[in-house]
Structure formats: structure tokens, C-alpha cells
């Protein structure tokens, strides 16, 4: 009991000592880099529709995502994406490019442990939860939608 009190007091003391960094620069950077990535996505989408005018909106958008994912994966490979991430934080994590980076970076990192146990297994160490949570919640939404539709 005495020890718990001591630990609580120590944690409070440490919390107060942690250097406070200014939040504004990082918020600003995440804003404009995140915005810029979205603008690039918008540009790619419009370019595809301009080049292939008969393509459906949906297909064009699917292509846009593929291009963005390719770019992020490539930038991860040449060691640039982590530098963007260090600068922009949420600005390059939240876009789909961050998802791509979170799959590519462990794939590249753990290649030395072999293609199966390295690349393939570790590929999902960060993005795995994203796919699992996304799929599970979409199943739940689908089922609820089905039940609601019965009435």
C-alpha cells in the first residue's frame, strides 16, 4: 500500500518534469503535409479522369489509391517516407500512404529473417490491427444493416 502511494507520487512528479514541447509547429506541419497529400490524391484522380474520360468515378478512385500506395511504398523503400513522418507526424500517418508505409517498413526491415518468417509474417505487425478492426467492424455494420432491413 505504501509502495503504491510512493509510485503514484513518483509518476505524478515525473509527469510534471517532462519537458513541454510546443504543440503548434507540429500541428501546423501535420496540417499542411496531410492536406498536401490529399491534394496530390485529388490531382491524380483528376488526371486519370482527364486521360481516360470514359472511366467510372469509382474505378478512377481505385486507381488513385493504388498510385498513392505505390508512391508511399517506394518512398519507404528509398528511405524518404520516415523523414516525412518525422516532420509531419499525423500528417503522413493518417492518409492511406501512412497505411502503405506501415506495411512496407516492416516488410523491408525484417527481410533478413527470411521471406516467410521475416517479410511475410512481419508485414502486418503494424497494419494487421487496422485490417482486423476494419473487417470486423464492417461485418458488424453489415449484420446490423441486414437486421434493420428485415423490418
Amino acid at each position: 500500500m505504501k509502495q503504491e502511494k510512493r509510485n503514484e507520487a513518483y509518476n505524478r512528479y515525473v509527469e510534471a518534469r517532462i519537458p513541454k514541447t510546443k504543440a503548434w509547429p507540429s500541428l501546423f506541419n501535420s496540417f499542411w503535409v496531410g492536406g498536401l497529400i490529399c491534394v496530390i490524391g485529388q490531382g491524380i484522380d483528376m488526371l486519370i479522369l482527364y486521360l481516360f474520360p470514359y472511366m467510372s468515378q469509382q474505378t478512377a478512385w481505385a486507381w488513385t489509391l493504388v498510385v498513392l500506395i505505390f508512391l508511399a511504398s517506394f518512398l519507404t523503400g528509398i528511405g524518404v517516407y520516415d523523414k516525412i513522418g518525422k516532420f509531419a507526424g499525423g500528417g503522413s500517418i493518417v492518409p492511406i500512404t501512412g497505411f502503405s508505409n506501415s506495411i512496407s517498413s516492416p516488410a523491408i526491415e525484417f527481410k533478413h529473417e527470411g521471406i516467410i518468417y521475416g517479410t511475410c509474417v512481419k508485414m502486418f505487425t503494424i497494419a494487421g490491427p487496422v485490417i482486423v478492426v476494419g473487417v470486423v467492424s464492417s461485418i458488424v455494420v453489415g449484420i446490423i444493416y441486414w437486421i434493420v432491413g428485415l423490418f
Binding site: 496531410g34 492536406g35 490529399c38 491534394v39 499525423g90 500528417g91 500517418i93
Partner: peptide, 13 residues
């Protein structure tokens, strides 16, 4: 796209 995308990312940050 810039404003909304930036805003969403900033919420992440």
C-alpha cells in the same frame, strides 16, 4: 481537399 484533409491529419496529430 487541402483544408479537410489537413484538418483530419491535424486531429490525428
Amino acid at each position: 481537399a487541402f483544408l479537410i484533409g489537413g484538418l483530419v491529419c491535424m486531429i490525428g496529430q
